[in-house]
């Protein structure tokens, strides 16, 4: 159709909070391409500083990007403490600081949380990562309720296999196994994540809140690896 949705975010300030990875970079690129000014803040202290210093924050992307694979019996309580701190405590207080700023600004706002699909369904070897990610997306949905009267929406983007360089580095057999579980038949990218983040940031998305949107090519739809048992 050649039609393109017009999304002008010029004049808006977008805060990118949390560890800078392919997903957060994809979000930043998408928001910047539509004219938003970008502020980077990796730690909670940096978020608090940015919130104090910036005259306004319209959009915030909060990345819960900590990951560690390991069998439950091999993970230590230090691993658990890291997971719960990085993927839950820090993003909770980032969101709180950002929300207070948006409330004071009286212009509403958009908060988008990045929390991987390991928090949407269980995986062997992902107990600490998955538990902490479920915690952050579920509390973000309760924040959505409390912040709605202030015109602030809170949504969650759940990236699947979007780390392209990590995916490319996997052995071919592993890649094939993973791809068989992705209905779309390909790994995703930070760009795919950015498109979803941008959607939640647009003025047209003001009635969407508390949504968890997997950006995963259909990976969470089924436990199957994509082939029926009859085809084997």
């Amino acid at each position: 159709m050649g039609m393109r949705m017009k999304t002008d975010l010029s004049g808006k300030v977008a805060l990118l909070a949390g560890p800078r990875d392919h997903n957060l970079e994809g979000a930043g690129a998408a928001l910047m391409a539509e004219g938003a000014g970008i502020v980077l803040a990796e730690t909670l202290e940096e978020v608090r500083y940015a919130v104090e210093r910036q005259p306004r924050i319209d959009i915030a992307v909060v990345n819960a990007g900590w990951r560690k694979a390991g069998d439950f019996l091999a993970l230590t309580n230090d691993d658990w403490a890291d997971a719960l701190y990085a993927n839950f405590e820090v993003p909770v207080f980032m969101m709180q600081a950002i929300a207070r700023k948006m409330i004071a600004g009286k212009q509403g706002g958009r908060i988008i949380v990045l929390a991987g699909i390991e928090g949407m369904l269980p995986f062997s070897g992902q107990s600490a990562t998955g538990t902490s990610l479920t915690m952050i997306w579920s509390i973000a949905r309760m924040a959505a309720i409390d912040l709605a009267p202030h015109g602030i929406t809170v949504n969650i983007v759940a990236p699947g296999w979007t780390n392209q360089s990590a995916f490319s580095a996997l052995p071919g057999e592993t890649q094939a196994h993973i791809l068989a579980g992705i209905p779309a038949g390909r790994a995703g990218s930070g760009q795919d994540v950015g498109a979803a983040v941008l959607m939640f940031a647009t003025p047209a998305a003001g009635y969407l809140t508390g949504v968890i949107l997997p950006v995963d090519g259909g990976y969470v739809l089924s436990r199957s690896d994509g082939r029926s048992m009859l085809e084997r």
Partner: peptide, 27 residues
């Protein structure tokens, strides 16, 4: 189903689906 008056408690309980699932798979 969570309630906004107990957000941290609700998060720890929602996460039991994920923790129990991972443990069930591994054990």
């Amino acid at each position: 189903v969570q309630f906004p008056i107990t957000p941290v408690y609700g998060a720890t309980k929602k996460a039991m689906h994920t923790l129990v699932g991972a443990l069930a798979l591994e054990l």
